[in-house]
């Protein structure tokens, strides 16, 4: 990849050709305030906060401008602050600012931008307040959509389009009345949304918030048990309980993506009815047993019935390797071809 040399705030940096000024800055540890940028998505250039000054050209949007050899860029000036503060103040004037009640408190891009730009209560209070009592869509079992916290950056829409290719949501109406809407403005649960939660993890503010997850105290890398794809997950653990699941961005299988089961279906891990030991029916009742006893029993029964009376049914929750082994076992050891798999049905 061809390297481009440029200067940001007096520091000489290099960036790959094709990168934007914002990406180059962030890659080099230089923060430029931004709201609608997301590393996985094409730039939208709608928040107008990521302005920088390019020498000889005036101010420009850094998330959309590609790096060029020899550019001299500054990320801070009175002129820039004069332009970019107002949009942020205006967002606050139309934002539910009860941050304590918000799931993204302390992890919020809007808070970060506001604090970077030095916004104060006074400067926001001079604005006329907008309507922040719009109805919240709680129809989805896994996450809520709160339009009063939405900053209309469109990251959720772009995620649904570019990453999931579902297009369950889009902008509707114009101007100030614009909303993020499902088709026909139905509740999200009645839309074609697959509840994958990709938009929820990318929402820079608390407009999309998960219902069931909690802030973890540590995280543990693991592999999702739901299917044979084997997505990498980072389990958020609190005490000895899993309280959240995130996709592992470093995992080559899923690059951070997850489906609705992998992301939100973790309650079974700590469920009190979860079967933790093999059960054997004795005198009409299931009783806890050991693996040795259980496997012995199964082996005994296999011999008893013989190959004519045994069939094996395998599961998509197993990995490909497990499935291979079970079919080999069925054919070579049990001596029958009566093997099938749930994914074939």
């Amino acid at each position: 990849m061809e390297k481009i040399k440029l200067t940001i705030d007096g520091m000489a940096i290099t960036a790959d050709r094709g990168k934007t000024i914002l990406e180059a800055a962030l890659d080099n540890g230089i923060y430029i305030p931004h709201l609608c940028h997301h590393q996985d998505l094409a730039p939208a250039a709608v928040c107008r906060v990521c302005l920088v000054e390019v020498e000889g050209r005036g101010h420009t949007i850094s998330c959309r401008t590609p790096v060029e050899e020899g550019l001299t860029i500054s990320t801070e000036s009175d002129h820039l602050n004069k332009i970019r503060r107002i949009p942020v103040e205006l967002i606050f004037a139309n934002h539910d600012t009860d941050c304590i009640a918000c799931t993204r408190n302390n992890n919020c891009q809007l808070q970060r931008v506001a604090s970077y730009l030095g916004l104060e209560r006074d400067s926001m209070d001079r604005m006329r307040m907008g309507n922040i009592e719009k109805p919240i869509d709680t129809s989805n079992p896994f996450f809520d959509r709160n339009p009063n916290r939405c900053i209309y950056c469109g990251i959720c829409i772009r995620t649904c389009d570019e990453i999931q290719n579902i297009n369950a949501i889009d902008f509707a109406s114009r101007g100030y009345k614009m909303t993020v809407s499902t088709f026909g403005d139905n509740p999200i649960a009645d839309s074609r949304c697959e509840s994958c939660g990709e938009c929820v993890v990318r929402c820079p503010v608390g407009a999309l918030s998960p219902k069931t997850t909690m802030e973890p105290s540590r995280s543990v890398k693991s592999v999702c048990t739901y299917c044979g794809v084997g997505c990498g997950v980072e389990l958020g653990v609190r005490g000895n309980s899993v309280v959240s699941v995130e996709g592992d961005r470093d995992n080559a299988v899923n690059h951070g993506s997850l489906c609705v089961k992998g992301r939100y279906g973790f309650e079974f891990i700590n469920h009190r009815e979860r079967i933790r030991k093999p059960l054997i029916k004795k005198n009409g009742k299931f009783e806890e047993s050991t693996w040795d006893e259980a496997l012995d029993l199964v082996a005994k029964k296999f011999r008893e019935y013989g190959k004519e009376k045994v069939a094996v049914f395998s599961s998509a929750k197993c990995s490909n390797e497990d499935n291979y082994v079970i079919q080999k076992f069925t054919r070579a050891v049990l001596g029958t071809n009566s093997i099938d798999h749930c994914a074939r049905l």
Partner: peptide, 13 residues
Amino acid sequence: CGKCVPCRLGTKQ
């Protein structure tokens, strides 16, 4: 159209 913040919120304000 509502796409960018300054126009959507600025003109309304």
